Amino acid sequence: MAGPPGLNRPGRATILDVAAAAGVSRQTVTRAMNGMAGISAETKERVLASAEALGYRPSRFGRGLVLGGERQLGLVVDDLRNPYSPELAAAVVRAAGSHGWNVMLADVALAGDADRSVASLGEQTDAVIGYLGDRAAQWVALLGSVPVVELDPAGPVAWGAVLLDPSAAVGALAEHLVGAGVRRPVVLDSARGPSRRAALLREALVARGLDVAVAQARASTATAAGEAAAALLDGPRRPDAVLAFNDVMAIGVLAACRRAGLDVPGDVRVTGVDGLPLGALLAPTLTTLSVDFAAVAEAALELVADDPTGSRSVAHHLLLRESA
C-alpha cells in the first residue's frame, strides 16, 4: 500500500520552504533558527524574516537533533474512561521508552478545551501520534510543523498514519459464524456510525448469503449497547448473533443477554473488536477481533523516527472465545 503524500502542502510551511524563500540551504536555516554560529547576521536576518512571513515554526524534533536533549512524544487519546485508551497509552509509553522518548498525553474527550490541549502538545513535544477523528485536519493545522502520525484514520490522510486493518479477521469471523449455524446476525454499530468497521462486518456476512441487520447504539458505551441489544432481543426477529462495534459495547450486549435469560453462545453469539484484556475475564469469555497494541505503538514510533509522512498497517486477528 502506498504511503500518504508528504507534509509539504498548502498551509503548512516546512524548513525547505523557508530555505527556498531565503535563497539558502536547509542547513543554513537550521543554523539561523537555532542561533548557531557560521552564518552572517545579514543571512540570519533574512532567514528569520522568511520564516516569519511563511508562519514557519521549527519543530522541537528538529531542534532536538541539533541541540540534544530528551525527545518528547505527544499522545492524543479519546476518553481515558474507555478501557481502550489506557491500553493504548500503556503500549505507547513502553514503546516510547525503548526509543528514548518521554510521553505527554492529551485526552480530547475530557479536556475542557480540546483545541488548546492539542495546541499545547505542539508547543511542548517533538512529534504527535494518536486518534484525531473527524477533527484531524484542524488539529494537524494547529500542530504546525510538528510531525503527526494518526492512528486508524477514518479516511485518506496527508500525513503519517498507522492503519488498522480488520478485513482478514472479519472474513475469518464471518466464516466461523456461518459454519456455526448463524442465520440472523445483527451488527451493532457505534454512535458515530455508519462506520467502516460495521460495513466490513455486514459485507462479509452478506457475501456468505446471510440477511444482516445493522443497528446503532445511542452512545458508544456498554450501557447504551445493552439498551440497544435489549430492544433487538425483544423484537420480532431476535438475532442469533450480535457483532458489536467494540469490546466495550459487546460487554453491554452480554449483560442484555443475561438479563433476558438467554444463553451465550447457545441462543445468541456475541463478538467484539479490539482484544481488550478484560474480555478474557468475562463469563463467557469474549470472542473478539484483536489488535496488537504493542505493534500499533511500535509502528507509530518507527514512523515518527524514520518517515513521519509514511504509513504502516497492523492487522486484527480473530480471537475465538466462549461467547461465539
Rank of each mutant, 00 (worst) to 15 (best):
V103W: 08
A20Y: 05
H176W: 14
T14I: 02
A315D: 01
L210F: 13
A106F: 13
A198P: 04
G100A: 08
P185V: 11
A199I: 01
A215C: 09
G261Y: 07
P153A: 04
E175N: 13
R183L: 13
L262T: 07
A229L: 10
L16H: 07
E150N: 02
M104N: 09
P156R: 13
P153M: 06
V24D: 05
V108M: 00
G155L: 07
D247C: 03
W101Q: 12
A255T: 15
T271M: 03
V149Q: 06
D78K: 02
A172G: 03
L75M: 12
G64M: 10
D126Y: 10
A119I: 03
V242N: 00
L88T: 08
S50H: 04
V66D: 03
G62K: 01
L105A: 11
A244G: 09
A204M: 09
V128C: 02
N246T: 13
L110W: 00
L65G: 14
R259K: 14
A198G: 15
M33D: 02
G144I: 01
E87M: 06
D134Y: 04
A225F: 04
S290G: 12
L210A: 14
G68R: 04
H317G: 01
L200M: 12
V212M: 05
L110E: 04
A95D: 01
D307C: 14
T43A: 12
L262D: 12
A280I: 00
M104R: 15
S195D: 09
R12Y: 09
T30G: 15
A224G: 03
G226L: 08
A141D: 15
A161C: 15
A168D: 04
G179N: 08
G74H: 04
E322K: 06
S117V: 02
G181A: 14
R312L: 05
A260Q: 09
P147Q: 10
L320N: 02
H99M: 01
L16D: 02
G310E: 12
R57D: 00
L201F: 07
L243G: 03
E150F: 07
V24A: 04
A294N: 06
R12D: 08
P4L: 10
R26L: 10
A204E: 05
A141F: 06
A127Y: 06
G23L: 08
G69A: 01
S117D: 08
G235S: 07
A241E: 05
L73F: 02
L188S: 11
D306C: 12
L205A: 00
S117W: 11
A89V: 14
A299V: 10
N34M: 06
R31F: 12
S195P: 05
Q216I: 05
G193K: 13
Q72H: 14
E123L: 00
D115F: 05
W139H: 13
L254W: 04
L320T: 02
V108R: 09
S190P: 11
A109W: 10
D306A: 12
G155D: 12
L276Q: 13
D17Y: 07
D189Q: 12
D115N: 07
G38P: 08
V76T: 09
V206Q: 11
L319V: 08
G275T: 00
A215E: 09
G133C: 05
R94M: 04
